[in-house]
């Protein structure tokens, strides 16, 4: 049974499972961690989970029909997401640095001047 599972060909579902695991890890990271840097790592995990989906949907080998739903579009989308993730990290880290210089910590709960 397990052997059959291992030997069966890899399909798009396997990749989607990896994607959703990364996504859930990212969400958990965001909810549990109070450190800004750790929360940003969570965001990166979410984006990469989505990226795995996009690339899997654009790979024809993974589909029995021999053609993929997204083809090149999905791969281009994934490249754009990488660039945007880098831009987002740059902005968020600059803001985190400014937060640190003002509050002396990168713990989000230590701000506490505003209570949303």
């Amino acid at each position: 049974m397990i052997l059959a599972g291992i030997l069966s060909p890899i399909t798009v579902t396997h990749y989607l499972v990896v994607g959703i695991i990364l996504f859930v890890c990212g969400i958990v990271c965001l909810v549990v961690k109070r450190n800004i840097i750790a929360m940003l790592i969570g965001v990166e995990l979410i984006l990469n989970g989505a990226n795995i989906n996009l690339v899997a949907f654009s790979s024809p080998q993974l589909f029995a029909s021999g053609t993929a739903p997204l083809l090149l579009d999905g791969q281009v989308f994934a490249l754009f997401v990488m660039i945007l993730a880098a831009a987002e990290a740059a902005v968020a880290l600059a803001i985190a640095l400014q937060f640190y210089s003002r509050f002396g910590t990168v713990d989000v709960d230590q701000g506490g001047q505003l209570n949303g």
Binding site: L30, R102, L114
Partner: peptide, 24 residues
């Protein structure tokens, strides 16, 4: 500074969630 930090972290997280939805 605090407002910008909250905004950036939650904004980035929601953008990631939306991207996952778009990929689905």
């Amino acid at each position: 500074g605090e407002a910008a930090m909250k905004f950036a972290v939650f904004g980035a997280a929601m953008a990631g969630v939306m991207l996952y939805g778009l990929s689905l």
